[in-house]
């Protein structure tokens, strides 16, 4: 009996060296490469006709673009334009990683805390740098809520500072935990089906129940995959908006 979390194990596919550095190619690396490759190929070939009246695939690619463009426009405004390619890459990367991970026997790179945390940290540091460059020391007024009673200010500033530094943690853990929980749940029900079936006799028929549950859960997981990519991206937009406008 396999553990439900064994699916998250890193397996080395082949060894690789770069100037003496060990950069072995693992299942995690493979699916990161695939996420970029599949998304790029899809968007490239879908847009190949570049038609004025789009076909189905081009319509899908354009929808993806407009979805992120509207998100940036709505949450950051026109100043968010230079950051649009990054936000778009982020959304596409997380979305395709999540969705590719749902294919049986594939690997979900976003279920790795180190991956989500690295992305969240990059966003957190980047956004803080943008805010510091744009507003200088005025940036620190961000931590002082406007119109608060003077007595409460030290306390409120403490809360604001904590909540600010918690951002990368909450951002990364949300995505990681959702992926981890979803895939673990699928494996648990799968394991259950096998366990019941292996009991033999009438129990074989009973294994239908966890199988049905897996079908429902898979639908739910597709929703979660898209939703978490959206949540990850829109929160990035909000942090960027805070950095550019300080509320």
């Amino acid at each position: 009996m396999h553990s439900p979390v064994e699916q998250f194990a890193i397996k080395v596919l082949f060894a690789l060296n770069l100037f003496g550095f060990d950069i072995q190619f693992t299942n995690s690396s493979l699916f990161m490469v695939l996420a970029v490759l599949v998304s790029s190929a899809f968007l490239y070939f879908a847009m190949a006709p570049a038609a004025t009246v789009p076909g189905r695939m081009q319509g899908l690619a354009e929808m993806l673009y407009e979805f992120v463009a509207d998100m940036v426009r709505g949450n950051v405004g026109s100043e968010g334009r230079p950051y649009f390619p990054f936000i778009f890459t982020l959304f596409v990367f997380v979305l395709f990683s999540n969705l590719l991970g749902l294919i049986p026997y594939s690997y979900t790179t976003t279920s790795q805390i180190v991956v989500t945390f690295a992305m969240a940290m990059f966003i957190f540091i980047g956004v803080t740098m943008i805010a510091l460059f744009k507003h200088g020391l005025h940036f620190f007024s961000f931590f002082v809520p406007a119109g608060a009673p003077k007595v409460l200010i030290p306390f409120l500033v403490l809360i604001e500072v904590i909540s600010y530094f918690v951002r990368p943690v909450s951002l990364s853990v949300r995505l990681f935990a959702n992926m981890l929980a979803g895939h673990t749940m699928l494996k648990v029900f799968g394991g259950l089906a096998v366990m019941i079936a292996s009991a033999g006799g009438v129990f074989v028929a009973g294994s239908i129940l966890p199988l049905v549950a897996i079908i429902g859960l898979t639908g739910l997981e597709i929703l979660v995959a898209v939703l978490q990519a959206y949540v990850f991206t829109i929160l990035t937009c909000m942090y960027l908006n805070d950095a550019l406008h300080l509320h």
Partner: peptide, 12 residues
């Protein structure tokens, strides 16, 4: 982690 970070940086 270091290996994943490396591949994340490269692929992203």
């Amino acid at each position: 982690w270091p290996n994943q970070l490396f591949w994340l940086v490269v692929t992203f």
